[in-house]
């Protein structure tokens, strides 16, 4: 099935290729559980493209970068959830809709290779055969059979757009439908909110005591486009100390959250790439929850919609104004 899907994607990419200078897609990774982002500049290289359940990376990470590097159009292979990030970039006028050709592929859910790798204790993997029900892996420690349902990326458990075209240029339908078991998107946020403030404070202090400030979370984010001029590195004024202590680490994350308010599409890349397994997405989800209640807005769903924090209304429906004395 995956093979046929890949063939369709390559065929569609070939059709699209005349209009673009470079095509971002997925190719074989450095080990059987990983895929690698690739950038194709020649039509004959399109057969490197693959698409399977391991394609967890959000290639929209490269949308803004590529649009600055390349004179012509860029093409991208995107899952519907990735396309949300591109849509958001378009609605903020950070990239030009016409210069970005989106090849959106219907998604049956993607697997988090780190979850699998952790389950296997980091053992060397020789081969992996991934089916909708089971994953057969051959490792240095022997053969193992795992249940696919246990290893989906978190975001797949509450995805509702897996077969939508998200306004892309080409849509490739996936015969397989989303298979990840349904879960509550705010479950972890709710768990945390049950605690009292001191406990929440202690929880985050513990999480951020591990942060190594590698900035992978910031750099992988498709919407954090100003990372080369980021205020956390400024000398004058020195907003943020470079000392790696929990309070400063938390401050850095709060800057991220604030700068992504009403923009974050919850692709989960920040949490996925964190080398220290910090639960960053909880913060983003909480912020999005606020934005949804206050402004009834979900980022990345509509390129025409104005993001609420980039505009203003004289009267906000859901914000009670304090009376002026």
């Amino acid at each position: 099935m995956a093979k046929k899907l890949t063939e369709t994607i390559i065929a569609k990419a070939e059709e699209l290729f005349d209009q673009v200078e470079v095509m971002a897609g997925y190719s074989k990774g450095s080990n059987p559980l990983k895929v690698s982002p690739c950038f194709i500049e020649k039509k004959q290289d399109l057969d490197q493209l693959i698409f399977d359940k391991l394609c967890i990376n959000n290639l929209a990470t490269y949308a803004y970068r590529l649009s600055k590097q390349v004179k012509g159009n860029i093409g991208m292979v995107l899952k519907p959830c990735d396309a949300k990030a591109v849509n958001q970039l378009i609605s903020e006028e950070l990239i030009d809709r016409a210069a970005c050709k989106m090849l959106v592929v219907g998604c049956a859910g993607v697997l988090d290779h780190q979850k699998i790798s952790r389950h296997l204790g980091g053992a060397r993997v020789f081969s992996a055969n991934i089916g909708p029900e089971t994953i057969e892996v051959e490792t240095a420690e022997g053969k193992k059979e795992l249940k696919t349902a246990d290893f989906y990326a978190d975001k797949c458990h509450w995805c509702s757009i897996s077969d939508q075209d998200m306004g892309g240029d080409v849509f490739v339908e996936n015969q397989q439908k989303l298979q990840a078991p349904k879960k509550d998107r705010f479950e972890d946020v709710k768990q945390l909110e049950k605690l009292d403030l001191d406990q929440i404070e202690a929880y985050w202090k513990d999480e951020f005591s591990r942060c190594i400030r590698c900035y992978a979370c910031r750099n992988v984010c498709p919407l954090e486009v100003c990372q080369d001029q980021c205020i956390v590195h400024l000398d004058f004024p020195n907003w943020q100390s470079q000392k790696v202590v929990p309070s400063e680490n938390k401050f850095f994350q709060l800057i991220r959250v604030m700068h992504l308010a009403g923009r974050c599409v919850e692709c989960g890349e920040c949490q996925r790439v964190c080398p220290q397994n910090i639960g960053l997405l909880k913060m983003m989800k909480k912020m999005n929850q606020q934005i949804e209640t206050l402004f009834n807005f979900t980022p990345g769903m509509d390129v025409e919609a104005k993001p609420p924090l980039l505009t203003y209304k004289t009267v906000e429906e859901n914000i009670e104004e304090e009376e002026l004395i």
């Binding site: 982002p37 950038f39 400030r213 590698c214 910031r218 750099n219 790439v273």
Partner: peptide, 15 residues
């Protein structure tokens, strides 16, 4: 070709 996908973070350096 080999460096195009790098997102310029410091994860590799810091570990």
């Amino acid at each position: 070709k080999v460096s195009q996908q790098c997102i310029s973070c410091g994860a590799c350096t810091f570990v």
